[in-house]
């Protein structure tokens, strides 16, 4: 690969155009208005131009989110693309903010934009929540009833992030998340 000369005049196109969103809680505004589009990109170079100029997730304020979704999909359950789906949820301990958070978030982004999953057409996007009680990363898929696709994505995710076999991650259907009243989660799938 080192012998191949790079043509820097041509950018590398991505399979999909992606939009990065930022959420900050302003109680004077609706939740939807607090979700703001930052930028969209459809080449590798434009992705790095954006990523290299924004704060890493670990530097964000408590209560904020980054979301990366295919263009046209809003980072919310109510969007038509998301409403029948769910998310693989990675819950981090507080100490992991310094060790693992940025690495996990970047690796997930690279899986998304590089179409690493066999069932990448089922991928909607990913969200990282920065929270005092522990950060979370969710990988959102379109259809919770497509068990084989959901499981393939979950297994590859665990593999790419080098999550130890003894650690289980769960997939939560958005509808269940919406309906839940307590803090316990109902996982429809596990890896």
């Amino acid at each position: 690969n080192e012998n191949i000369s790079m043509d820097y005049s041509i950018k590398h196109p991505l399979q999909n155009c992606w939009t990065l969103w930022y959420y900050e809680n302003d109680r004077n505004q609706s939740w939807e208005k607090n979700q703001r589009e930052i930028a969209s990109f459809e080449t590798i170079e434009d992705f790095w131009s954006l990523y290299n100029h924004i704060k890493p997730a670990s530097d964000l304020k408590q209560g904020t989110d980054y979301s990366l979704f295919k263009k046209g999909i809003r980072p919310m359950w109510e969007d038509d693309a998301n409403k029948r789906g769910g998310r693989w949820l990675i819950s981090l301990e507080k100490k992991q903010r310094n060790n693992d958070l940025d690495r996990y978030w970047l690796d997930i982004i690279l899986c998304l934009i590089g179409e690493a999953f066999d069932n990448s057409e089922d991928i909607c996007g990913a969200v990282v929540n920065i929270r005092y009680k522990g950060d979370k990363i969710g990988v959102w898929t379109a259809d919770a009833t497509k068990g084989a696709a959901v499981m393939e994505i979950g297994k590859k995710l665990k593999d790419r992030l080098h999550i130890p076999p003894r650690v289980t991650i769960g997939y939560e259907i958005h509808k269940d998340t919406m309906d839940k009243t307590g803090s316990s989660s109902r996982y429809s799938y596990n890896v």
Partner: peptide, 18 residues
């Protein structure tokens, strides 16, 4: 159909591309 797939290292190697 076909899709454009990029490996992790390939993406990382372009991080500092001009």
């Amino acid at each position: 159909g076909t899709k454009i797939v990029y490996e992790r290292n390939f993406l990382l190697n372009l991080r500092n591309s001009p």
